[in-house]
Design a protein around this nucleic acid. Structure first.
Length: 424
RNA sequence: GGAGAGUUGGCCGAGCGGUUUAUGGCGCAAGUCUUGAAAACUUGUGGGCGCAAGCCCUCAGAGGUUCGAAUCCUCUACUCUCCGCCA
């Protein structure tokens, strides 16, 4: 959520920003109209209340009929305006939740993924002297992935992991957790069945509601939703709390299962386990003071850590700076890490590193007392650390050998106890 | 599923119709003192509207009673404890 004072003072900047995110700038005019209406009513009501307070002061000592009648009159007037204000404020708040975050000035303007910029590449794409298999073929021939039975039992995008597929998944997660713990991150396994508020806080709602699995109780109340990422519970973990600046930044590495309906992507990545409904992921969430320079610094740090993992796994990758139209509603700046996947003969996304500024903390009401004892909203950031199965796709396809076997990345060998995956 | 107890500011915790501008403590901040620090003392500490003076709001939320509600009544949400059931 944006600061209404900021919108009031910079309507054109905000309009331009949301137009760049493919939103209608007229929304801003509507919000400003609601805001004016709201402030009008507040003014009226506060005058009436001030009058009533004065009357009540007099009534303490002199309880005359006249004063009591006047007080009753004021109450009546208040009772006509107060419900109006409540209605206007509800509308106003709902509108505020619809406004996306403002991208930083340095973010390239673009309509869709074609506007993203490659800012660096790492590693060499090895020219194979054989026709590479994709992860589906490798998974089948090595008995690591069973998509046929996954679909039979779970439906489209269902899959079973087996044998070293399972071991690789756990190894990757364990290796990632150890890495982040050694960097001072606090490991957290959060709940993933969550109240709606948590999804509003991150900015997944209102935009991503169709993308989210929902549990409805018989009474129609206490609806809960399944988180698509540990970002959701981790961002809301400190909801309505106040930190001291000396306790920031807070660095967390969450591990959780993730659930996604993939409602908007029926035709996309339909083969294999690149895009699935459930998977496990480690996610970084960082909370810091309200300072752009600090956010920018941490954003780079978080990216460097994920790159360190990709590098230690020796996965060739590139880093993209996402453009305004392809970065998602809440973000102010975003990098994607994409690894080379020989089976796709293309890059595929492995991680997404975002600066949220105070967009999420305003919704979640997470604040801190700064060194001047002023209360401010924190900044929040998040980045994928590693996930399965998408990182498995990258590993299997990049580590495949001419004879159909797959080598195990050196850093994962201690967790699996063997150096290659081979059948027959 | 049944029974009971709670929800007050960053935290703890008083208050049980107008003396509360929400007592007190802790934390935090500024100042005084000090070579520096600690301690001590003083002041401050949530939200909104307004250029400002200032005004308004805030005791889980929503209604109600009353001239007047943190305080009384009703409903809702959440938390905790015990019993039952399941693991």
């Amino acid at each position: 959520m944006l600061d209404i004072a900021f919108i009031r003072e910079n309507p054109d900047k905000v309009k331009r920003a949301i137009a760049n995110k493919n939103f209608s700038p007229e929304t801003i005019d509507k919000i400003l109209a609601s805001d004016t209406k709201r402030r009008d009513l507040i003014g009226k009501i506060e005058l009436l209340r001030a009058e009533r307070n004065k009357l009540n002061e007099q009534l303490k000592s002199a309880r005359t009929q006249e004063l009591m009648a006047k007080s009753g009159e004021l109450k009546e007037q208040l009772q006509t305006f107060e419900p109006q204000l409540r209605e206007v404020e509800e509308e106003f708040y709902a509108q505020m939740l619809q406004i996306p975050g403002v991208p930083l000035d340095e973010v390239p303007v673009g309509k869709d993924s074609s506007g993203n910029e490659v800012i660096r590449t790492w590693g060499e794409i090895v020219k194979l002297d054989f026709v590479p298999k994709n992860h589906i073929e490798l998974g089948e021939s090595l008995d690591l992935i069973d998509i046929e039975r996954g679909s039979k039992v779970a439906g489209f995008r269902g899959y079973y992991l087996k044998n070293e597929g399972v071991m690789l998944q756990f190894a990757l997660m364990q290796y990632t957790l150890q890495k982040f713990i050694s960097k001072g991150y606090t490991p957290v396994t959060p709940p993933v069945i969550l109240k709606k508020r948590a999804f509003v806080n991150t900015g997944h709602f209102p935009w991503g509601e169709k993308e989210t699995y929902k549990f409805t109780s018989e009474a129609g109340e206490d609806e809960t939703y399944l988180a698509g990422t540990a970002e959701v519970p981790l961002v809301s973990m400190y909801q309505d709390e106040v930190f001291y600046e000396k306790d920031l930044p807070i660095r967390m590495i969450g591990f959780s299962p993730c659930y996604r309906k993939e409602a908007g992507s029926y035709g996309k990545d339909t083969k294999g386990i690149y895009r699935v409904h459930e998977f496990v992921k480690t996610e970084q969430v960082v909370i810091c003071k309200n300072d752009l320079a600090e956010s920018l610094k941490l954003h780079e740090e978080m990216m460097a850590l994920t790159e360190e993992i990709a590098q230690e796994l020796k996965l060739p990758y590139r880093v993209l700076k996402m453009c305004t139209g392809d970065m998602g509603e809440p973000q102010a700046k975003k990098y994607d890490l994409e690894a080379w996947m020989p089976g796709r003969n293309d890059y595929g996304e492995l991680a997404s590193d975002s600066i949220m500024l105070d967009f999420q903390s305003r919704r979640a009401n997470i604040r801190y007392r700064d060194v001047n004892n002023e209360i401010k909203f924190v900044h929040m950031l998040n980045n994928t650390a590693s996930n399965s199965p998408r990182w498995l796709v990258a590993i299997l396809e990049n580590y495949q050998q001419a004879d159909g076997s797959v080598k195990i990345p050196e850093v994962l060998i201690p967790f699996i106890g063997k150096t290659e995956i081979r059948r027959g």
